[in-house]
Design a protein around this nucleic acid. Structure first.
Lengths: 233, 233
DNA sequence: GGCGAGGCAAGTGCATGCACTTTTTGCCCT
DNA sequence: AGGGCAAAAAGTGCATGCACTTGCCTCGCC
């Protein structure tokens, strides 16, 4: 994963690091509260501290890491309250996307959405959780794009990425797969009908249910005994 | 406005620059497409290029500046389409905030919202555009906070700041002041009633109207004929 | 006279070094 | 023995320097 790419001055070095670090946070490889020390990261990516700092700047602006002046950076710690607020936002954003999608999707978009959705039923039957999760991501991405609003798209993708660490286990709840598909079905049906209000409501409900499912794991999740309260001062 | 304070290593140096530059962009002092050369900025703020780069990183992540690898940074150029998408997002976000505010504001919040709103009627009578604009910002900020959802709050504030350059002239349209107040009034009334749906709709309409008003100026505002010179030296 | 190659200047990307701040560790005093 | 206290260690913040890239300009060639 690291590689000794230092030959090309492509200018994307920092971006690669941002993606790499973001990925580790999003996939849970790096836990909230974990220290991100510039020196170690520099060594890990085989660059100097300068690009590392820049990458941390980006990540901080993205909200994935928290930077304390003169005290280093840590993987962003989200309180239960903030987490709840993000899930709620996500539900609203998805509702907007679904509503707009119902009103604006092109014929082609509607068609491929329905086709993929119907195809995914097989994944449910087979209980292919991994594959279904991939499809699920695709499905939602289609809604974001179908809204034909770049800014809403960006806000939604951004929020989703910040929630990613807390959603990983959502399909491990028994029966969640089939229920997820049925919820998708309601959304798709509403979109095909062009019924924005219904699509929005269905999408909001869908996310709300996911958020409740995830909340279980979020509560159980603390691997760290007591990262929660950091000593201030 | 440079200031030669470099005594304190407070760690907020970069943040100050971010705010300063963001402010210049947001207030239109720096025009879209304008070049942001690291050396000049470094000289202007009397620091080295390193913190400038970091600040530009932040701003880029915020979407206020655009960074081309090896080719420097420019003030973000927003297309008409993207601008429209941001205004539309803003309307939706404000609708969410208003809806949540109607459902969740505390008694104190409702009361002070109404009081301030009623007080602002005098500004309208007096035609105090400047003061009303300040109040207007306050008013909307109250809605964002009243939603009791930090993430929605953040998204909304962020979107508003990116739209700021395009809203400056909104109250220069004749009669806009009074109309704005009336629209606020509808929102406040709905919130006091606890009617989320009505508050949301009213807020969405309010922003939509502002966006149409601003669109006029946005059209007049094409990129960079040349920068108005107020930068001394 | 136009067109492409080479070189020059401007400017970005990153490494390194030093100053300063925070944190830790060992020590002294009560 | 325990609780500060001070000095060192660790780590961040910024300046500086150099390599590389890009854009422009000039000069040779067609």
């Amino acid at each position: 994963m690291s590689g000794k790419r230092s030959l090309v001055r492509s200018g994307t070095t920092v971006d690669q690091m941002v993606r790499a670090i973001a990925d580790r946070i999003v996939t849970g490889y790096l836990r909230p509260g974990e220290r991100l020390d510039e020196g170690s990261l520099a060594a890990r990516f085989d660059v100097s501290r300068t690009p590392v700092r820049e990458a941390l700047g980006h990540l901080s602006a993205m909200g994935l890491v928290e930077r304390r002046p003169n005290r280093g950076a840590i993987v962003a710690v989200v309180t239960q309250e903030h987490l709840a607020s993000m899930f709620e936002s996500m539900a609203e954003l998805e509702a907007i996307c679904a509503r707009f999608s119902a009103e604006r999707m092109t014929g082609g978009e509607r068609r491929s959405l329905e086709i993929e959705h119907l195809a995914s039923a097989r994944l449910v039957q087979m209980g292919a959780e991994e594959d279904y999760e991939y499809f699920n991501t695709e499905f939602h991405t289609r809604l974001y794009r179908g809204a034909h609003n770049t800014h809403v798209h960006d806000l939604t993708v951004m929020t989703r990425s910040r929630l990613a660490p807390f959603r990983r286990a959502q399909f491990m709840l028994p029966g969640r797969l089939a229920k997820s598909w049925q919820e998708h079905d309601v959304i798709v049906t509403a979109i095909m009908r062009g019924d924005g209000a219904a699509a929005g409501k269905a999408a909001r409900d869908h996310v709300s249910i996911v958020s409740e499912a995830s909340a279980v794991f979020a509560a159980v999740d603390p691997v760290h005994p007591e990262v929660s309260q950091s000593a201030r001062r």
